[in-house]
């Protein structure tokens, strides 16, 4: 199941674990990224908490945790090479995997069609 937030994160949900990243639209708006800071595995976040930071030459932006949950894995590849977020934001450049506190809460997020309408 693929879901989106109004803050331009995507979630690929398998069971009770969501793989989270930022959308192609967001990556385009940010421009070339030069730095990514990810949370520690094991950290817990509430929906809306700042879970990661991405920086372009000119600005820092927060990436919010899209749902309540615990970080179970992070993607070191985008820390080593932030430009991956620009080249493959909805594939190889995922940010973290989140064990959802309440998987049913994902139903309230946007589906792909609704997100596309939002950024159109």
């Amino acid at each position: 199941m693929l879901k989106f937030t109004e803050e331009h994160e995507w979630l690929k949900i398998e069971g009770d674990v969501a793989t989270v990243g930022i959308t192609e639209h967001a990556a385009g708006q940010l421009g070339d990224l030069v730095f990514v800071e990810l949370p520690e595995a094991g950290a817990s976040f509430a929906k809306g908490d700042s879970a990661a930071t991405v920086e372009s030459v000119k600005a820092a932006s927060d990436v919010y945790c899209p749902l309540d949950g615990e970080i179970v894995e992070v993607n070191q590849a985008i820390v080593d090479d932030p430009s991956l977020v620009n080249s493959d934001p909805q594939g190889a450049a995922w940010f973290f995997k989140l064990k959802l506190a309440d998987p049913s809460a994902a139903n309230a997020l946007l589906d792909e069609a609704a997100y596309k309408e939002l950024v159109a």
Binding site: E7, A26, K58
Partner: peptide
């Protein structure tokens, strides 16, 4: 995600 510099 939100850019802090943007004059929304």
């Amino acid at each position: 995600m939100r850019q802090t510099w943007r004059p929304d």
